[in-house]
Each structure stands twice: as C-alpha cells, then as structure tokens.
Simulated scan of single mutants.
Amino acid sequence: MNHKAQYIQPPILEMSEATVRRDGINILDRFSLTIRMNENTAIIGPNGSGKSTFIKLITQDIYPIANKNGAPPVRMFGKNHWILEELKSKLSIVSSDLQNSFLHNTKEGHISGLDVVVTGFFSSLRLFPHQTISDEQYGKAKDALILMNATHLADKFLDEMSTGEVRRVLISRALVTNPEVLILDEPTTALDFVARHKFMEQIRKVVQNDTTLILVTHHIEEVIPEIERIVLLKNGRKAFDGSKKEILNSENLSDIYDHPVKLNGNNKLFKVHVD
C-alpha cells in the first residue's frame, strides 16, 4: 500500500530542461530530473558539475531561464510556485551555506546547540525576545538531538564545536519540524574518514525513520545502503541516472571525473581507488 501511495503523491521535485547561465556559460544545461517520495537519491559529480546550482534552484537563491515551450523548469510537490515557509514545512536543506551563515552569526553572540535546533521552528538564524517557545518545542528539539546522537551538544556553544558537531546540530535543526524530505549538500566535508562513517550511520537512522533523503555530494563513501538511485553529473548535465547497481561503477565514475577510477563496493560502504 505504501509503495503505491508514493506514486499517487506528486513528485518531490520535477526539473524540466532547467538551464542556469552565468557569464554566457550554462552552469546547468537543460537539466531534467524527477524525484518521488521514498526514492532516496544521491546526486554525485565533481566540482563544477552543477551540484551547487542544483541546490540553489531548490532554495530559490537563483532562478532558471524560462523554457521556450512554456513548461515550468522547476516544480516542487506538484506546484510551479510556492510560499517558501510552506515549502520548508515539507522539506529541509542542510548545506555549507547554511553552516557558514550560522557560524558568521555567532560572531555577534553565542548560541547553544539546543537553541540552534529550536531556530528550526522559526526558519531563523537566532532566537529573538519576541518569540515564544513552548515546552513542546523544546521537547521536540531535544528529541531531534537524540536522533543525531548529539544530546551532549545541547548546552555547548556553536562557535566552540567541531565541524562534525556543527553538522549534527544543523541536521537536528532540519529534523525538528518532521520534514518529509531531507536534502544534504556535501554533509561530511572536512570530516575525517572515521567521523564521516559515524556521521552517515546517524543519517541512516533518519532515513529508516521514513524521511526521504536527497544527497548531493562528490564523496562516494556517503552513499549509504538506503540510497537506491544514483544521478551522475558532468559539466552541468545529467550523465547517468538509474539504480545504484546499474550506475555506480568504475566506468561511469571514470567518465564523469575524466580520470581512471576503480570502485570497490559492498552493501555498507563504497571506497574509491584512483590509479
């Protein structure tokens, strides 16, 4: 029943011939992609392949060129236009831009891990005196920290945390409103391989809790077993798209990275060896 229900619902994301141009160059070139509920997907590509532009289209930080055929280049949950606050109740994004915004904001004053999570209810970077926070909201914030194994960070100031700790807190913030979809943009950048593995194990728990994951990355090691679909990008275009078994292989990776890559995989972790 649940399997059928996901196809009755409108797709999370529909991009149709989406093109983004900067300085006369197509950063994203006639990009088409549909992702449905419960379709955990990894979008993988080297630097400059269009991953960041893809994220910024979703967050409406940039807009695509209008299609000549009149079709909307980007639709979310079946809508051409949406109120951003309404969208945030269904979908949460954790990106390096968000992390940088929070860390920049802490220069003007400390904010604890728990309060960072609570800001998720208001889609803000800080808490303000006029905001009323209920015991229920604090309870949900603590539950979100528990899910990310980050309760020890509740009273720690954000600007005193390691990169991995900040990521855990920000994902707890993203989960506090129980979004249907979580989008992670390069979630383990700057983490060592041990921290990366532990971090992705926590993400697995989130996905197993019935949250649809869209992972945008160039780290193959982040492809957790719950991800079934792989989209490989190259030069702003979709080079390969299909099941993990079909798409994630040495030949395809060598193609998009323009360098020989040998991929060894098992059910839990992928490792890349560059010759």
Rank of each mutant, 00 (worst) to 15 (best):
L28T: 04
I256R: 03
L248F: 06
T189Q: 11
L215H: 03
E17Y: 09
V94M: 13
A190Q: 08
L175H: 00
L84R: 15
L114C: 10
A150Y: 01
V231C: 04
D23K: 12
V118A: 05
T41Y: 01
P129M: 09
I227Q: 00
V216C: 03
T34W: 05
Q202M: 12
I146C: 15
N67V: 08
R196W: 05
E186D: 08
F157C: 12
K56C: 05
G113F: 01
S49I: 02
K262T: 15
N178C: 08
Q137I: 11
E86N: 13
S124A: 14
V166D: 01
I8K: 15
S16K: 11
G164D: 03
W82Y: 07
A174H: 04
D159R: 03
L91I: 08
A141P: 00
I146Q: 15
D115Y: 04
A174K: 03
N38T: 15
V231P: 00
K140Y: 07
V223S: 04
F270A: 12
G48N: 10
L182A: 06
K198C: 08
L213W: 03
G120M: 02
S89Y: 11
S52Y: 01
N2T: 15
P46R: 09
V194A: 12
T217H: 02
T163P: 03
G78Y: 06
F31Q: 02
L57I: 05
R204T: 08
Y138P: 05
V207K: 06
S16Y: 13
L233K: 01
F193M: 15
